[in-house]
């Protein structure tokens, strides 16, 4: 069997089916459906670009004060009554050795080499919360990190608004993302399928499964908008205009903490998303988000089973 190639030209034909869905048959003989419209594809890749730079420039900004608090204020993580719930520190022990630590409440984890204390490319020691390979720019520069962050924040927000408008107006959200009642009833089945790494075939593969739908809903309607709103709550200018944001999140420092948590949840989603792409067939998946065409694995082997098999099965007691 040869590895499939990324091809855009329809191999055989592109008929319009009764359901209105565009279908074609790929070179490998499999049916392909036109899964992702150009709006979804362009939006997805703009999001990849914007979120990547937002994440890494966000870690640069975090490094300027690597402590998180709850409430309206918070400034003195080490000495003071403010009590950071999370701190990334560099500490020197009595022997003069440096340790990087992540502290959450009473729990302190040694993270030397990655968080708190890490090595630069030339081997020298760098004292910063997130190491250079996790930040944009790599060197410490809060102002440039902010320039990156707010530039790509605009791209992210505008792209997100277009995607939301498209999703509702084209009924993509209502049709493809909203779970149906049978979806929700089948959630147990779907969890088992995911644990067994079993991926849908045939007609079922033309739709998103229920866990996939719930994950997309979480990202599109909770994590990402939550990131934007908590980000805006950190703006003293925007707060003057929308002070209710401060009440919604319980204060500016709570918003900063939630901003970081939303980013973490989004990273979690991205990891699961990429693992699923690898498991479900990376070439088919990546082709579909570039060209729109998504190959469906048939319910049966491509060659139909011999006719005689059917009565043989039925004959069994």
């Amino acid at each position: 069997m040869t590895a499939p190639t990324i091809d855009e030209a329809p191999a055989v034909s592109e008929p319009q089916t009764a359901s209105g869905r565009r279908e074609r048959v790929g070179r490998d003989g499999r049916t392909q459906i036109y899964r992702h419209t150009v709006w979804v594809r362009v939006g997805h890749w703009l999001n990849v670009l914007a979120l990547t730079l937002l994440l890494f420039s966000g870690l640069q900004i975090f490094n300027a004060h690597p402590h998180l608090y709850w409430g309206q204020y918070g400034a003195n993580a080490a000495a003071g009554p403010d009590h950071a719930w999370l701190s990334i520190d560099a500490t020197r022990d009595k022997a003069g050795k440096d340790h990087g630590t992540v502290r959450m409440g009473q729990l302190t984890i040694r993270t030397t080499g990655v968080f708190g204390v890490s090595k630069r490319a030339d081997g020298s020691t760098s004292y910063r919360a997130f190491p250079r390979w996790m930040t944009v720019p790599g060197y410490t520069d809060l102002s440039q990190g902010r320039h990156f962050h707010f530039f790509f924040a605009w791209i992210f927000v505008l792209n997100g608004l277009v995607f939301w408008a498209y999703g509702f107006l084209s009924r993509h959200f209502q049709r493809d993302i909203a779970p149906t009642a049978p979806d929700l009833r089948g959630i147990g089945r779907s969890i088992v399928d995911h644990v067994k790494l079993k991926h849908p075939t045939g007609e079922a593969a033309t739709r998103y499964n229920v866990l996939q739908k719930l994950a997309y809903i979480a990202v599109i309607f909770v994590f990402l908008p939550g990131m934007v709103l908590t980000g805006l709550t950190m703006s003293p200018g925007f707060d003057a205009f929308f002070p209710w944001l401060l009440d919604l999140f319980g204060g500016r420092q709570s918003a900063r903490s939630l901003h970081f948590i939303c980013a973490g949840l989004t990273v979690g989603f991205i990891i699961v998303h990429l693992v699923e792409v690898m498991l479900a067939g990376p070439i088919n998946e990546v082709r579909s988000i570039i060209t729109g065409w998504y190959g469906i694995r048939p319910d049966h082997p491509v060659a139909p089973p011999p006719v005689e098999e059917t009565p043989a099965v039925e004959a069994r007691p």
Partner: peptide, 12 residues
């Protein structure tokens, strides 16, 4: 009022 530092901390 609340004072927000560019570094990320706040004080009232």
């Amino acid at each position: 009022t609340r004072h927000d530092c560019v570094e990320g901390w706040s004080a009232i």
